[in-house]
Design a protein around this nucleic acid. Sequence first.
DNA 1: CTGAAAGCGCTTACAG
DNA 2: CTGAAAGCGCTTACAG
Lengths: 359, 359
Amino acid sequence: MKWWTKLSNPRLTDVAKPTVNDIARVAGVSLATVDRVLNDRPGVRSVTINKVHEAIDKLGYVRDTAAANLARQKTYRFVFVLPDWKGQFLASLERGIAEIIVSAPQNRTEVRTIRVPNHDHTQLAATLAELDPAQVDGLAIMAKETPLVRDAIADLRKRGIPVVSLVSDQPNSDRDHFVGIDNVAAGRTAGTLLGRFAGGQKGKVVVVITNKQSRDMIERRHGFDQVVGANYPHLEPLPSVEGQEDPAHTERVTLRALQQNPDAIGIYSVGASVQGIARAIAAARLPKRPILIDHELTENSAALLRAGVVDAVITQNTGHLARSALRVLRAKCDKTPVIKSQENIRIDIVIRENLPSMK
Amino acid sequence: MKWWTKLSNPRLTDVAKPTVNDIARVAGVSLATVDRVLNDRPGVRSVTINKVHEAIDKLGYVRDTAAANLARQKTYRFVFVLPDWKGQFLASLERGIAEIIVSAPQNRTEVRTIRVPNHDHTQLAATLAELDPAQVDGLAIMAKETPLVRDAIADLRKRGIPVVSLVSDQPNSDRDHFVGIDNVAAGRTAGTLLGRFAGGQKGKVVVVITNKQSRDMIERRHGFDQVVGANYPHLEPLPSVEGQEDPAHTERVTLRALQQNPDAIGIYSVGASVQGIARAIAAARLPKRPILIDHELTENSAALLRAGVVDAVITQNTGHLARSALRVLRAKCDKTPVIKSQENIRIDIVIRENLPSMK
DNA sequence: CTGAAAGCGCTTACAG
DNA sequence: CTGAAAGCGCTTACAG
């Protein structure tokens, strides 16, 4: 059956590919009834349902979603809720979302982004409560895990709106899916790179964290400690210092930590401002450049990677995050299965040599 | 304009979104003429063309590709031509292709894979010559770069079939696009990891290559030498030994190299059978485990990563390769632009800690 | 509970 | 060179 050559029977494979019309004919019912069965709509006798299902099985029907959406004049409307920090990671994520917005009209999809103060659980919950099932077909949310948010998500699901958590999981809510990386593994990856790059040196490691409550931060730190404790016992990770979401504050706390530990051989930035850390390193005038491992590839971290200040960045592709969220949300709407392997977000390791050439 | 709340004007944003009918009305022509202009079909006076274009601009029309394909009853038919080696990388690539085949019917796409003996340029060229533009809408090809293949590609393009090169580029042909990584950068990445993991040790590095002619091999070795020469002068990469595409032969040549250089501190596997290399390491009974950097993540290399025999794998995601080839081919058919950032295949670094959990 | 007919946004013969 | 009409595979009021 080589349809690609001139000699073979032209368009041989085109035969069949059954449509709703074929089902209607075989089942001996009308198009409308086929549609009702196909879409689980009420008001069909079970005998009739069975007849239709038999025809479907017999013909091996697969529905043409594009045609269905066209007829339905369906546009998917998704809302992305993000925290309102100003950091470059979020900017990058927004760019990823902007890209899907650009290609969205092609797919009959509208996407809106809402930024909500991350510390204000009440406002966040209120925003979610405002979402109208008649207007919104799905929600992607990046937020700290709090009881209020958990309940708001449950409520949305009850109203029939699919929800995916983004970047930071809401494992105790009944969100449909988590789009993001395994942060424990990400921390282990950071620990291993730091351990290997240290090449047998003994010493302390300064750990800078955004805040100690955020789930992804906790998981990363945990993974880091696991692997360092097990494989690099000559390294001594210090208690985390908190940089908040503020470069200047991050610089201050990091500088203080470096001054208290001038023999530190490395710094693990669990999610803090890498700019602040770089400035602290410069200000500390250490005898030897410390190894620096950071999370999330941004313009800043890329520049510092190029400059040789940062040694490696553990990251996740924001474009993938956005597209994956979109695909999963669409799948949930269509009630089609998600392809697991495609939605598995990878933990990327970036060093100077494999920096992506373009943004 | 918050359409997501109950309070706002329902479906406010739905207004407009102009269609061909609107264009026809505004331009004062028929649907058929609009269609002709939209698709650059011949037989329209330039005055008319202008009228239509003005209407398009005025209305801000964007075409609905899904509806167009439905009407056109268009199914894309793409052929993937791959070498007939038995290796796991190709198996993985085929799995990536299989995945797009599964989801293909949804997108009115048919994909066929042809395996051609890689050494047989003549048969390869003959296979390409057999491709009928009436039957095939696009070609993705992974093959060594030879004049015969180059000409065959040019010929296909002349017959109007878009061509993308896959994994190994055909830079001197006029293929539409290359789907794959920058292999010089991949080699630099391997060199840097080996250099850093060596942690200041002096010593020789055994380099095992599939064959010395293949373009990707040459580029990787080149990048490796660049970075080691510049940044790790205490390392001494040895001349490449050729493993062919054969594990047993790879084992023999690697073992010989290790016996001749028992003080080698590392091995760079540029694209050879990592199984063969692992067996050679075991057989050589070295005083100290050498650092081993390999390319392409497969079941074998993943197992060796877990076992601590391989230290890092430089790889490219075969799922991305397949999907990217598909998207680019479809874009070429539709004459729509490719989104560069989305089609940029990343150089992935995999260590034990960030191994993907599932295949 | 079921069906006939119109329509989604586009394309395609067929006339003229 | 241009247009009227039918059709792609599905869904949606509207009748009955």
